[in-house]
Amino acid sequence: MKREVPLAITFITGVLLVVAFFVPHPPLGDLQQRFQIWYSIVAGFTFLLGLDSLVKHHLKKIQHRRSGWGFSVALLISFFTTLILGFYSWFVFSSPYDLRAPFQWLYTSVILPLQATMFALLAFFIASAAYRAFRARNLAASLLLVSAGIVMLGRVPIGKAIWSGLPVISDWIMNYPQMAAKRGILMGTYLGAIAMSLRIILGMERTYLT
């Protein structure tokens, strides 16, 4: 029951989807769409598990006065405020997306600036990591450094001011060698995904059951 049933469910679901792909007629025709709906419903419940885990973790931290417990209080306040405003906007304004809803205000005043600044901050850390990784020690690192430098300079006005050919070379790199490498890597990745899917459906890969 604990191992055999999940393996059977995985096998049946996977095989049914493959069969449905090749037999696009009732009752299998809409199976893919139906399963995707089921997946979304199950995912909705899974979200609750995640939230429970987050809240419990921080409540424990506050309860035991572990270091940084004050930040956990801030997290829980922001969490419950967002949740309450979200459901309030949903029920009172019929949609959390309504522009008059407080949920939208919260999105533009809190989530959006935090998210954008957090990602902007990454620019500095990527640059600092790149400084260590990109030092031209060998041909591969030099190629990385040169192509990154050209693409960065080619995308800003100062690059064009330095030399008008930089944007042209930058576009050439993006359209030819970059595209060729990306395509090769993607093909390899997708072939790997197919091999892994086969292993999962046939029950050879069982790590998800642990």
């Binding site: 041909l139 693409v151 970059q178 595209m179």
Partner: peptide, 16 residues
Amino acid sequence: IFIMVGFGASFGYTIM
């Protein structure tokens, strides 16, 4: 060689 040029370009693009 292609992979390194590709990674460099993707990196530059991400930074920008």
